[in-house]
Structures are given as C-alpha cells and as structure tokens.
Design a binder for these strands. Structure first.
Length: 736
DNA sequence: GGGAGAACATACTGG
DNA sequence: ATGTTCTCCC
C-alpha cells in the first residue's frame, strides 16, 4: 500500500484500477502521491485536468476521504463544471458535496456563510465590473472630479489593482503626489459607499474572504480541519490575494496540490503572479515537483512550432512537450487581402471540413479580441453555418436583464445604491435629474443610502406635486413588488412578477426602434432561466433561491447564445480558449498591433504574456492548425496596413506551408508585401484614373491596384454602386 | 421631463 | 465603427 497522509474514515477501499490504469507514469505518480505539498507542472495537453480529477477520485475511493473534505479551485465556471462532471463519471457518484468552484464563487460562499464575521450585511450583493464602473463614475461626479482628468476606467483599475494585492485604502500612505492622494481619496470614498450599500465587487470577494479567514481564527480552523486536501487548477494564474488565501487554508498541513504551467500564464493584467509558482517552492519546502511533458493532444508539427515560439521567452521553468503521435500535417498560413477575405477563407475551409464529414463542434476560430468576431459571424451567417460565440456580451450582461435584476436586488436590499440608481427611472416614470440630485444630496449629507434619502426627501414635503407623486409611486412600486414576490413560492414566479409589473416588459414592447422585440424575448428567457435554475449546487448554504439566482447572474454571466446541443463552430478569444481543445483551429488576425496587441509591444513583460497567449492558442489544435493574417484591416473605423505578427517568424519554416498562391512564393513572412505592391510600378493594362466599364456595375474609375497574376485586384469607384475591389481574374472590364 | 439626434469619447483580454 | 453623453425642443 502506498503510504499516505490522508486520514482514513473507512477501511473499505474500493477498486482503483479505473483510476490508476489510464494514466502514464508521471500522471500516476502525481495522482498517488502522499498528502503533502505538490506542484505539478503540466504542459498544454499533458492531462492536467485528468490528473486533478483522478487525484480527487483516488482520495475518495482509495482512502475513503469524504467528498465534503475536498476542495478544488478553478478559474472558470466552465472548468469547475467539467471537473465535477468528470469526477461523477469516473466514480459514478454524485459529487454534490465536493467544494469545486472558482475562487470568486467559493469566496462568495464563505462570505454568505459568515457574513457577520466578514462585517457584511446579510443582504450584500455582488457587483460585476460594469456595475462597478457605474459606481465609480457616479462617485467621481460626487467628488467633483473631472473625468477627463480622472478616467473612471483608470480609477476602477487602480482600485482593483490595490485589492488584488490585498491593500485597503487605510494601508496606503496619506502623503504622495497629487495622483496618489487623489486615487486614495476616491478609493476611500468607494469603500465607504460599498460598505453603506452592501455592495461587493469581484476583487472584494477575494480580499474579504481572505480577511475573514485571517481575522477569525475559529472560522479558519474550521475550514482547515474540514479540507483534507486543497486542489488548485491553473495555479500560474493566481494573484497575490488568492495565493494568500490558499496558504491560510493549508497552513501547517501543507495539504495543497497545485497544477499549473508557467507557459500558460495569461492573466497578468488582472493581477496574476507567475511568481507564485516560485514562492510556492519556498513556502512549502517539503513539496514535490512532478512535470508532465508528454502531450496527448497535438501533432508533432503543431507541438514543435509551439515549442519554438515559447522558447523565445526568458525565465521559464523549462519544459519541452513531446508526443509519440506522428508529425501530422504542416501548419497552414494564409495571407488575406483584408479582414473580409480572411473571414471568407476561414469559413470556406470550415465548409470543406464539414463536407468531408467533420463536425463543426471540432472547429474553433480563435482571436485576440472580441471585436474580431463580427467578420466571421457575418460570413458564417451568410453561409448558414451554425456557430456559437463565447464571451462578448453575455446573457446576464444585457441591459434589459440587468434592469430586471436590479429590481430584484433592490427588493432584496433597499440599500443597494447601484440598483437604485439603475431602476429609479427605468422605465421612465417622470423622475428626473432634479429629484435624483436632491436625493443624492440628502444621502451624502446624512451619510445614508439613496433609498432612505428618497424617503426623507418625500417626508420633507417640499417637492412639487408632480415630482413627489412620481417618487412615491416608485417607492411604493418596489414595496408592493417585494410584498407580492414574498407571497410567491417559486423563484420564476417572482422573476416573472418583476418583469411584468415593473413596467419593463411594457416599455420594451412599445419600443419598436431599439430592438425592443429582442429585449422582450430576453426578459422572457430570464423567467425561463429562473425556472431552470439549478439550486442543488449551493444547497448547503442557507441562501434564498433569489439570492442564489442573483449571485449566479453576477458570478456567471452566462453564455451569449443558447443551443448548446447543436453542432456548431466555436468562436472565442484566446483567453477563453485556455483549457479547451479542437481538431481544427483557426488562429486569426496574426498581425502586429493586434496580436501582439499595440499596448503590449513596448513592454517586455507584457510581450512575453502575449507570446504565452500565442502558445496557448497554437496548442489548442489537435490535428490541423490554420494561422492567418491580413494585409489590410479596417479597425476602429480606420484602414490600417499591419505587418505580420512577430510570432509568425518564430515558427520554424519547416512546420509551415503558405496557402495563398503568390507571385513571390518564397516571400519571407517578415516582409510586408502590401507596402511593396503599392509603390512598385503596376504591370497592367489598367492605369490609375482609367475609366472602365463593367457588365453589371456600369461605368467607373480605377482608384487603386495591387497584386499580380492571378492575384491582381483593382479598386474601382463605380458611378452607380460605389467603390469596389475586383479580382481581375474573375471579371471582364472594358477600357473606355 | 422625455425623446431624438448630434457631439463626443473610446477602442484587449474576464470572474 | 460603436456606444454613450449632451443638447435641444416639444
């Protein structure tokens, strides 16, 4: 028997062959290691999740560790869900009692359970970042700060950055330059406002959960004893406060099992510290390190190319992925004329893939930023190819949904100023700026929340009859909704009540211009979501259905589109692709300024993070990887002619094949072809300014030309149909 | 006080 | 290019 530090509640150790047999040596060593600090350095596709899942299953089955004694932390809800599912499948049990969740989700759970010790009102509500931004904007106005000099986004970023490091306003020095003093003042005011309103932002969840454990020895001890093993996924992406939280929980027992890959750390911009991996080795001197380097996902070509790219980073812990699968196909590189052409190419390839029997679910289009998805969506839609966009505007982020939720929140907590501001005049009910300003003044002067301030204003009796009536109407509406909702048994009935009686539904039904119909549908979908909402997950916390639902909305903003079961192409950012894999991957927009992004090119550290992102993207592909960039791109309303991404040059040519038929076949990737073609003489029968006639478009004037041979194109300004690019090999033009 | 259109700012990633 | 705030007029 392998010696273990687990306490054994039971002698019945089950059959563990299912758990052990499918593993390779390194994986098995990690899974069966004794309970001590463990650092598993797992390269992309090396079976990271598998190790975690089997490790947890191993403890349950081999040692009878009760499920409620196991904690597993992930970064995304998707990862948490998947892990839970896989454990259930492997053990054929219900893993309901397992504490598996995101840092934010688990922190929230702790805070709900121990609201009092965390110095929070029982009714506290979670704000997402757009809520937070609104609050900051409001605050800057109150403090009379010019928001061109103090951009709200920057203030928000400052506050979150402090919290990520565990720094409260009171920890910051009063002295300092104007910028620091001002930021400190805002931070202080922000803390006060949140405390008064019972609002908690994302960073606050983590910070406060840490403080809860740190300052309440009884609470800390309870959880230290409860959790026999703490598992952490994507450890390289933990920030300072998350790591501090983990250390508190595992203090003295060193029962921490972390899995990570320094080459896949891509969240530095929200406070993640790769250094935590190095610190781990110092803080847990008796730790064991296991490296997983065998890749089971990608072909040799993809893997070698990715290895070469990431090798350009400095200070890596050193890992070289290998595979015993064959080399597979070369990576394909496509150079597009413009973003339209790029999208066209990608979609055509996908259609071919599907025609040849491939599944759309196995295909992903990965891009650096969400804004890039549109081109692809349009082309996919035009060809009737089902697709699904991850990220972007998600269900619970939609304005109409947030409005409805704000009603529910205000009903649950009258002191929620953010929600109060949101719905007081939504839909419009005759409460204008004047009234709102008066309420804010009272709130500020008496240091109370907006709701009681509104009550006070009304009681003063100084309002005009019309305004007074509107305000009391609103207060009564909330009061009545609250009472009626309390009488309803089911959650969805409460949601339905609010949607229908708040006036939201009615106002959207009337709205014909601004996608009112879609908003009505979304509100109906919200009621539906409430009906389907699964309460089991957090049943052991004595939360009301409504609180759970609201939390769910804040913490998991939901997917943008439904129809998960349909076979469809996946579109997402590189960030959200982490942890996933696809047979066919398109890595698009590989251009300087886009990827790596403009903001990162001057900073060595950020550039390395971009490179890791590129590494993450490439290693998503199992069989086929297509990389594309465009020679011209319309971005933010301006045409630009970007150079190919530097990362392309880091891929050894022997793993690449160029798809586009070009005049200069061996043109090095680093040479911007576009600039050449505009400056060189054009060997063509058309000249700039030449008047031509087209069978369909009529008469026009040649504006620009580029490419040669089969790739030659001209831009023509037609009298009737405007400016168009035409491929000369496809059209017949008559010279006039 | 409400609504429409102009002027204006802002453009990366996410729990 | 797009979303948000501002301004004007009823």
């Amino acid at each position: 028997m392998i010696k273990s530090g687990f306490s054994q509640d039971t002698e019945k150790t089950g059959d563990v062959t299912d758990i052990i047999d499918p593993l390779n040596d390194a994986q098995r060593a990690a899974v069966t290691a004794p309970s001590q600090a463990m650092l598993v350095l797992a390269g992309a596709g090396s079976g990271k999740t598998r190790v975690l899942v089997h490790r947890i299953a191993w403890q349950i089955k081999a040692f009878g560790v009760p499920t409620h004694s196991i904690l597993a932390v992930t970064f995304t809800n998707k990862a948490a869900k998947e892990m839970r599912g896989r454990i259930e499948d492997l053990l054929n049990i219900s893993a309901q009692n397992l504490w598996i969740g995101t840092f934010h989700g688990l922190a929230h759970r702790l805070l709900r359970r121990h609201a009092k010790q965390a110095k929070l009102p029982e009714t506290f509500q979670v704000m997402d970042s757009s809520d937070q931004l609104r609050v900051v904007k409001r605050l800057l106005q109150t403090l009379n700060l010019d928001d061109s000099k103090w951009p709200p986004k920057q203030v928000q970023w400052y506050i979150n950055a402090q919290k990520d490091e565990g720094i409260r306003a009171r920890h910051l020095p009063e002295s300092g330059d104007l910028y620091q003093r001002q930021m400190l003042a805002v931070y202080k005011a922000y803390e006060e406002l949140c405390d008064r309103s019972g609002l908690v932002d994302f960073a606050e969840l983590l910070l406060r959960a840490h403080e809860l454990l740190r300052d309440n020895p009884d609470v800390l001890e309870f959880y230290q004893q409860r959790f026999q093993q703490v598992h952490v996924d994507e450890f390289q992406d933990t920030n300072t406060i998350q790591y501090a939280w983990l250390r508190l929980l595992t203090q003295g027992k060193d029962n921490i099992f972390v899995v990570g890959d320094d080459d896949q750390s891509i969240y530095g911009w929200r406070g993640a510290k790769i250094e935590n991996i190095y610190s781990f080795q110092k803080h847990y001197p008796n730790h064991q390190v296991i490296k997983l380097e065998q890749n089971y996902r990608s072909t040799g070509n993809i893997l070698k190319a990715a290895n070469n790219v990431i090798a350009n980073n400095e200070g890596r812990m050193g890992k070289e992925l290998w595979t015993d699968a064959g080399d597979g196909d070369l990576i394909s590189l496509y150079t597009a004329f413009n973003e339209q052409d790029e999208a066209y190419f990608v979609v055509e390839r996908i259609r071919t893939w599907v025609k040849e029997g491939g599944l759309r679910n196995d295909v992903a289009i990965l891009y650096r930023s969400n804004a890039q998805s549109r081109q692809f969506e349009e082309k996919l839609m035009a060809t009737g190819t089902p697709y699904r966009v991850y990220g972007g505007l998600r269900f619970f982020d939609r304005a109409e949904i947030k409005n409805a939720l704000a009603y529910l929140r205000l009903m649950a907590n009258r002191h929620d100023d953010a929600s109060f501001e949101r719905v007081i005049n939504t839909p419009t009910r005759g409460i204008g700026n004047k009234t709102l300003e008066d309420i804010r003044t009272i709130a500020r002067d008496q240091n109370i929340a907006l709701w009681p301030a509104a009550v006070n204003l009304l009681n003063q009796g100084k309002m005009t009859p019309r305004a007074g009536l509107a305000l009391s109407g609103f207060l009564h509406l909330i009061q009545t909704l609250d009472e009626q909702a309390a009488a309803k048994e089911e959650l969805y009935e409460k949601v339905k009540l609010v949607v229908e009686k708040s006036g939201l539904l009615e106002s959207y039904q009337k709205d014909k211009v601004d996608k009112g119909e879609e908003k009505v549908e979304n509100l109906e979908e919200l009621v539906n979501a409430a009906k389907l909402f699964d309460f089991e997950q957090s049943n052991e916390d004595n939360l009301s259905d409504l609180d759970m639902f609201l939390t769910h909305a804040a913490l998991e903003s939901g997917d943008g589109q439904a129809e998960e079961f349909e076979d469809c192409v996946q579109l997402m950012t590189l960030h959200s692709a982490k942890g996933l894999e696809f047979k066919l991957v398109f890595l698009v927009g590989m251009e300087e300024g886009l990827f790596p992004s403009q903001q990162s090119v001057d900073d060595a550290g950020r550039l390395e993070e971009e490179r890791r992102l590129c590494y993450v993207g490439m290693t998503r592909a199992r069989q086929l990887l297509y990389i594309s960039y465009s020679e011209s791109r319309r971005l933010y309303g301006r045409e630009s002619y970007p150079r190919p991404s530097r990362f392309l040059r880091e891929i050894p040519p022997e793993h690449l094949q160029e798809i586009r038929v070009r005049a200069a076949v061996t043109r090095p990737v680093s040479m911007p072809a576009r600039q050449q073609s505009i400056t060189t003489a054009i060997p063509s029968k058309y000249k700039l300014g030449q008047r031509v006639n087209h069978a369909k478009f009529g008469e026009g004037v040649v504006l620009q030309m580029e490419g040669d041979g089969a790739q030659e194109r001209v831009q023509i300004n037609f009298k009737q149909v405007g400016v168009k690019w035409l491929m000369l090999s496809f059209v017949q033009l008559e010279v006039l």
